[in-house]
């Protein structure tokens, strides 16, 4: 069975196996340098917020990670997993796996940096309120997705079962997005990416730093997903060679 599906399992593998020989490529290095540069800009050249003080600068780390995790990792992973269930293309499974893993990493950053802002501003590291609790719940679902992938040996079953979990995780994202509107939460409303111009109350310097930060972390996200996908493809090729 595994041998019969071998050609489709490594579709697009020739190009990716060339990437496999490089591992950490120029794109990832440029992305890391971009993140370092934007961190210097945020810490040294961005104005300090008057009332919140230095703790507000966690915003430039926390918010891009949240946007990338929810809207650029979990939602695409969910869509790609849905497409896998329809088309049964192993490349889609590898893309979903890569997106979900990078999404877990960004979601972990969100959950770890938020409390360090919350303690000086709210007076507590954690509150069991809707936004925080639902994000934590999503993190557990994503961890469950990765654990499930590690627990199932048969490739087709693993891809099908994990695709279902990823699709369900995607349904959580609109709910998490709307929690600040639906419930009386502690979590702040959006202050930059909001359709209402009256709510966009960052200073121009802060907005610029935020947008640079978002761009830098987006490039890092693209580099990590690309690298993870290349590794997954090289791994599948290696598994097929081992079986042969």
């Amino acid at each position: 069975m595994a041998m019969a599906s071998a050609p489709s399992a490594v579709r697009g593998g020739a190009r990716d196996s060339r990437q496999a020989s490089g591992g950490f490529d120029w794109f990832l290095i440029v992305a890391i340098l971009g993140v370092v540069a934007v961190t210097v800009r945020v810490l040294l050249f961005t104005p300090m917020e008057l009332r919140q003080g230095l703790a507000q600068k966690i915003f430039y780390l926390h918010v891009p990670a949240a946007i990338l995790s929810l809207y650029f990792a979990v939602v695409p992973a969910s869509i790609v997993s849905g497409l896998y269930l329809w088309l049964k293309d192993p490349r889609l499974d590898r893309i979903a796996e890569s997106l979900a893993e990078v999404g877990v990493m960004f979601c972990t950053v969100v959950l770890c940096t938020g409390p360090f802002w919350g303690k000086p501003i709210w007076g507590t590291f954690w509150q069991w309120e809707a936004r925080l609790t639902s994000t934590l719940f999503l993190w557990f679902v994503l961890i469950g997705y990765l654990v499930l992938r590690g627990a199932v040996d048969q490739p087709e079953s693993r891809a099908r079962l994990s695709a279902v979990v990823a699709v369900m995780a995607g349904f959580l994202v609109p709910f998490i997005h709307l929690t600040v509107y639906m419930f009386n939460t502690l979590h702040p409303m959006p202050v930059v990416l909001t359709p209402n111009p009256m709510e966009q109350n960052l200073s121009p310097e802060m907005r610029q730093s935020f947008l640079w930060s978002l761009l830098a972390f987006f490039v890092l996200y693209c580099a990590l997903v690309r690298n993870r996908y290349a590794w997954a493809t090289a791994r599948d090729i290696q598994l097929l060679e081992d079986q042969a």
Partner: peptide
């Protein structure tokens, strides 16, 4: 090194909500 910019935003709403 730092400039300070007053930024009244929703964050302050949240802190005041926690304070009751």
């Amino acid at each position: 090194m730092y400039q300070t910019v007053p930024q009244p935003n929703a964050v302050q709403d949240s802190s005041s909500r926690l304070a009751g």
